[in-house]
Amino acid sequence: MEDPFLLPVTYKGTQLQLEAQLQVRGYTHRFEVLVNGNAVYFETDEEGEYRAIAVNPITDHTPPDTGLLIAIAEAIKAVLA
């Protein structure tokens, strides 16, 4: 596995720095991003777009805002471009 890094995400006009980690698994990969202490995983779908596939609540039971998840997926794509 790769070392954690800070993923810059712009959401609602605010610049966030979220801890993320690339996880390579065989021929595929995913990103684990910590959002308010909760691990959110992003994998590519059939069209090559990133989507949130799982949320493991640790600190609370409120899932992240859908708009924030979209912003994170776009930030991942931007980092890889």
Rank of each mutant, 00 (worst) to 15 (best):
N56S: 08
E43Q: 15
G13M: 08
A71L: 03
E46A: 15
R51M: 08
T66H: 06
V33L: 09
E2F: 08
L68S: 06
E2H: 13
L22F: 06
G67S: 03
E49N: 15
V9S: 01
A75K: 06
G67Q: 03
L7H: 11
P64I: 01
N36T: 12
G13Y: 10
L69P: 10
E32V: 13
L34H: 08
T44F: 00
P57Y: 07
K77Y: 10
H29M: 04
A81T: 14
A52W: 07
R51S: 05
F42P: 02
F42K: 07
L18Y: 12
V9Q: 02
L68H: 08
T44H: 05
V55N: 06
T66D: 14
N56I: 11
T44E: 14
A39H: 12
G37W: 12
P4T: 11
I58S: 06
E2L: 06
D3R: 11
P4E: 07
V55L: 05
L34P: 01
N36K: 14
K77V: 05
G13V: 11
K77S: 13
E49A: 15
P4D: 01
Y50H: 12
K12P: 00
A20F: 08
H61Y: 10
E74G: 00
N56M: 02
Y27N: 15
T59D: 08
N56F: 06
Y41W: 14
M1D: 13
L69C: 08
E2M: 06
D60P: 01
L22D: 10
E19D: 04
F42W: 07
A71V: 06
P64L: 01
G67K: 01
V35W: 03
Y27A: 14
P63C: 02
G48S: 09
Y50V: 00
L69M: 13
L34Q: 14
N38A: 10
T66N: 07
Y27W: 04
R30A: 04
Q17W: 06
T44Q: 15
V55T: 09
T28Y: 09
A71K: 00
G26A: 12
G26C: 05
G37T: 11
N36G: 10
D60H: 15
A73W: 10
L6Q: 15
E19C: 01
L16V: 10
